[in-house]
Design a protein around this nucleic acid. Structure first.
Length: 613
DNA sequence: CTAGGGTTAG
């Protein structure tokens, strides 16, 4: 039994008690209310799908299935309740007359499709149908349409909608314009055109700025994102919490801790609303820029935490090899009322994997489906393979892969190959890699793996063949690069880099580091050098690795005793890992390295990963 | 009765 407040103008305090189960209506006053108004009120009160079904049968009983007002309200509710297919089927079943539909009704349907993942393409179908019916779009139609295009990410689709916007003359509308920038930023290859539109806008509040900054951040053009944020301040536009979330994303990607700290004080000073999402972004930033304790502090200070907050700290702890803390946080989360989702399990399993907690990892993997009904995805299987491989349990990893109910993806194969490679199972590594290349012939990482295997076998002939094959396919290794933040600037080094104006001093420093390290017992790991050159040249090749250059740069330019923080785009190589241990001891520096996978804290010749990577 | 930008993942 539910009570619906009337909304007809003449009815005043009229209330309708509707017994939805039996589809009977009992009006509390005389029957002066029109049945369509009753239906509208009832539809308004629907807060769950079953109710909507009941009202639908009522609509039928009262013969209102062709009434455009009722149907419009019906589509609106369907879209709110995420039941767009249901609405669609009813609207286009034989009883209704499409010629009675109006713009509003179509907008509701387009909105519903645009906000439903996997059905976004239908929004465009619906739009075309709307035009076929002779119904004209209005300025409310296009934000939905552009959002759908943004979700699909197809530039030509976006362009065609842009054409319609121009044709119907809605390109001056602020909302349409802003969403247009957003759409171009979300489509592959569209961001520069988005920027052009953005630059041409006469008035811009924080929304288009956020769209643009967020666009750069999503693409990994983080420097552009930060730069645009600076321009925004110069332009005197006040950023809000959504802008700051995008800026923080870019900062997280750069691993720029000083910038991150500056952003945090900026948020405090400007009194930007610290929404839960913004706090989550701050936590993620601090954890991924190397200050996980600060991330924890922020986390415990939050008055409300979402699953994203928990996931961010758990993943953060995992990256720093603090797996036991991650596990106890997860347990604490379970003790509260928070229900774990599939993503937090990925973080938890990777925490186990980075800290060698094999048994816990196994237990949690079982718990996930048994207690929480989460069906393991490829990512979860990947974590488990990673868990076994890192712990050196190559046989167990292989057994696990064979028992997996789905075909492993290339990432899992590469994890296995790496494990086989580092545990001396070279034959197995070679055969898996060859199969992988057969299956995925255009992925350069596979060839690099194979060439590493041949290097370890000292098979220079095969190795040269691989390199030639790569040249022929015009493939290149992704160049390793290392970033370092110094005095509010971000410096980026690549191997053999001579672009820096201090490069002579840097190379001199690298030589000195080499001499000191050898004195302390360092032996260069020349087997990791993929070039077929003599040993001395190989040492040189190792010394010019980007992280060694960055560390030399930092030793030259920062006061002694201060920690050095660097960020790598790839995984740190074995030689640099062992070299950095020596450097931390010789020069008494704490060196914090973020690589593609995790953090390494070097201190006194020891790394926090316990060589577990 | 409808419209713009944002967070977690091997």
């Amino acid at each position: 039994m539910s009570i619906v407040r009337g909304c007809g103008p003449s009815l005043g305090i009229n209330r309708i008690k509707a017994n939805l189960l039996s589809c009977r209506i009992i009006t509390s006053t005389s029957g002066n209310r029109r049945p369509d108004e009753t239906c509208l009120a009832l539809l308004q009160s629907c807060d769950a799908l079953p109710k909507l079904f009941q009202v639908h049968s009522l609509i039928f009983k009262l013969g209102l299935q062709g009434n455009p007002f009722v149907l419009t309200k019906f589509t609106s509710k369907s879209s709110e309740l995420n039941s767009v297919d249901y609405a669609h089927s009813i609207l286009f079943s034989a009883q209704s007359d499409c010629s009675l539909y109006d713009t509003f009704l179509f907008n509701n349907l387009i909105r519903a499709y645009a906000q439903t993942e996997s059905l976004k393409a239908k929004a465009l179908e619906m739009y075309n149908f709307m035009l076929q019916c002779g119904v004209l779009p209005n300025n409310y139609t296009y934000p939905f349409m552009l959002k759908a295009c943004a979700g699909i990410g197809d530039l030509s689709l976006g362009r065609s909608v842009h054409g319609s916007v121009l044709k119907f003359g809605f390109h001056e509308d602020v909302h349409v314009r802003n969403t247009m920038v957003h759409m171009y930023c979300c489509c592959r290859g569209g961001i520069d055109y988005g920027r052009k539109l953005f630059d041409g806008m006469p008035k811009r509040d924080s929304v288009p700025w956020s769209a643009m900054i967020g666009g750069y951040a999503r693409l990994g053009r983080s420097v552009d994102a930060v730069e645009l944020f600076r321009k925004m301040q110069i332009a005197g536009v006040r950023p809000d919490e959504i802008t700051m979330v995008s800026v923080l994303c870019a900062c997280t990607d750069l691993g720029a801790l000083e910038l991150g700290r500056w952003i945090e004080t900026f948020i405090e000073k400007q009194k930007v609303n610290k929404s839960v999402v913004l706090c989550n972004a701050l936590i993620d930033m601090f954890a991924k820029c190397g200050d996980v304790d600060k991330a924890l502090k922020l986390f415990w200070n939050m008055s409300q935490r979402t699953i994203v907050s928990w996931t961010s700290v758990i993943v953060g702890l995992a990256m720093h090899g603090r797996g036991l803390e991650a596990v106890s946080l997860f347990e604490e989360m379970k003790r509260g009322r928070m229900v774990p989702d599939d993503i937090v399990f990925i973080g938890l399993l990777s925490a186990c994997s980075h800290s060698g907690l094999v048994d816990q990892g196994r237990e949690y993997f079982d718990l996930m489906s048994k207690e929480f009904g989460i069906v393991p995805r490829m990512e979860h299987y990947g974590c488990m393979v990673d868990l076994f491989c890192r712990a050196g349990l190559v046989k167990e990893a292989l057994r696990f892969v064979q028992k997996m109910p789905v075909e492993p993806n290339p990432i899992i194969w590469r994890t296995l190959i790496n494990a086989c490679h580092s545990h001396g199972e070279l034959k197995l590594a070679e055969s898996i890699t060859k199969q992988l290349i057969h299956y995925e012939p255009l992925h350069e990482a596979n060839y690099v793996l194979l060439s590493h295997i041949y290097a370890k076998k000292f098979d220079w002939g095969e190795k040269t063949k691989i390199r030639e094959a790569m040249d022929k396919k015009r493939m290149k290794k992704i160049p390793g690069s290392t970033m370092i933040e110094l005095n509010n600037e971000i410096y980026e080094f690549v191997a053999g880099d001579k672009s820096h104006n201090q490069y002579r001093e840097i190379y001199k420093m690298v030589d000195e580091m080499g001499r000191e390290m050898k004195k302390a017992g360092y032996v260069p790991t020349t087997t990791e050098v993929t070039l077929d050159i003599d040993e001395e040249d190989k040492e040189d090749a190792l010394y010019s690795h980007s992280e060694k250059l960055a560390i030399a740069f930092a030793l030259l330019n920062t006061p002694s005793g201060t920690p050095i923080r660097i960020v790598k785009n790839l995984r740190v190589c074995g030689d640099c890992h062992s070299a950095t241990k020596y450097i931390s001891k010789i020069y008494s520096r704490e060196i914090v390295v973020r690589d593609r996978n995790r953090f390494h804290h070097f201190k006194d010749g020891i790394c926090s990963c316990r060589d577990f990577w």
